[in-house]
Amino acid sequence: MTRMQQFELPSYLEQSDAVRDRFARLRQRPVVLEVKGLNKDFETSHGPVTALRDISFVTHKREFVCVIGPSGCGKSTLIRILAGLETPTSGQLLLDGRAVHGPGPDRGMVFQSYTLFPWLTVKKNVMFGLERAGRGRLAAEEEAMQWIELVGLSKFARSYPHQLSGGMKQRVAIARALANQPRILLMDEPFGALDAQTRAKMQSYLMEIWKNIDITVLFITHDLDEAIYLADRILVLKAHPGEVQELIEVPVPQPRSPEQLLSPEFLATRKRLEELIHPPQDDAALSEDHLNMVRMVAVDDEVESVF
């Protein structure tokens, strides 16, 4: 299927000792987020639609979990339920063992669409949550500046969001979410709107931040490389209805670096994800995907064929 297939790849389930050891220790850490039997139905004009069915998983402290799945499988719905922006039809949601309802500063959220407050400067944006938490103006300001420094935007503290590039905006959004010191950081395709170069940079930034502060991350993406590069574990969802297909422990050793993108573990994991997300068996479906095209180039066109 891909040019990688000519190499003999190990199984994605094979883990080096260091990696296996790390996962063993990871499982010993306290559970931050526990999702039990989550279901979500939407009432639509065509009747009820099941977006999520029976989702269960746990996230340990300082773990980095990616959620991946085809478009429309309910990734956003899941993370919005976790953030408290949607209510599940049934199921339970425990944060540090306690049930949570509704949105709150204990779960930070970063949206794909930036959602910075355009009327506030970078500094004021980051101060927003701190002030809501009752922090005094000066204290909030000082604290905000530390977070802004962490994302490397001190020079832009007085700028307004529209004066920033997409990547900078998203860094502010991360700083703003982290300033509340949430138990978990929820990110819904945060780099989806960025160009490839900026996206790679942002991934490194995020890894840097994650390493240096006490934060658990649940990260949604539809980019397979991004998921493998960032995640300890990958939660793979399948569509219609959204169900957990597999929870993969990524065999690529930590700490990560861009060179690992071609390592056998990486490629093995990638192959597995591709199998899960683009199943090879449905040739019929594939041919249906093929556009039913009529040639629309003049017969005497200078360029006979594009090949």
Partner: peptide, 28 residues
């Protein structure tokens, strides 16, 4: 943009602060 209201809620804004800190400046 409803996403602004959602973002504010995940940052801990409630009722009145949603109205006065997000809706009002957001539309002004």
């Amino acid at each position: 943009d409803p996403a602004l209201l959602e973002a504010a809620q995940t940052l801990g804004a409630r009722r009145l602060s949603l109205l006065f800190r997000v809706v009002v400046p957001g539309i002004i």
